[in-house]
């Protein structure tokens, strides 16, 4: 792999890993959601640093260019992460829907109770 692309790739991977750590430290990203990014960044970093491993992986998957291997694995990880987030969004959508139904019913009950406990008109305490 040409040294320039290797340096750029290593820098990007280090940036992703460090930035994700920082986001977790600042509590802007939950540990649960940092896992996929850290695994992706670390794997790409290992592939970029170790030429032997990259050569072996490229030969195994049949890639003629080392950069193609990096793109292939990067894209695969991104697809997995997107699928994971689609599942999470579906779960959250169902939870928000149920909570909204519950809020609607509770608000209705609150109004009903308020009406029932309202003092009759003209009544002063």
């Amino acid at each position: 792999m040409p040294p320039r692309i290797r340096i750029i790739s290593i820098c990007i991977c280090i940036f992703i890993v460090v930035y994700v750590f920082e986001l977790v430290r600042r509590k802007r990203l939950n540990e649960e959601y940092s896992f996929g990014w850290l695994v992706t960044g670390s794997m790409m970093l290992i592939l970029s640093v170790s030429e032997d491993l990259l050569t072996w992986v490229s030969e195994t998957v049949g890639a003629t260019l080392f950069t193609s291997t990096l793109f292939f694995f990067g894209l695969t990880f991104l697809v997995i992460i997107c699928l994971h987030f689609s599942i999470r969004i579906s779960v959250l959508t169902n939870q928000v829907r149920t909570l909204s139904q519950h809020i609607g019913i509770l608000y209705h009950e609150k109004k009903r109770l308020e009406k029932a406990t309202e003092p009759p008109e003209g009544h002063s305490s």
């Binding site: 909204s100 139904q101 809020i103 609607g104 608000y107 209705h108």
Partner: peptide
Amino acid sequence: VDFITLPYNL
């Protein structure tokens, strides 16, 4: 009429 209002369109 007795009605329940949902917080947004579901």
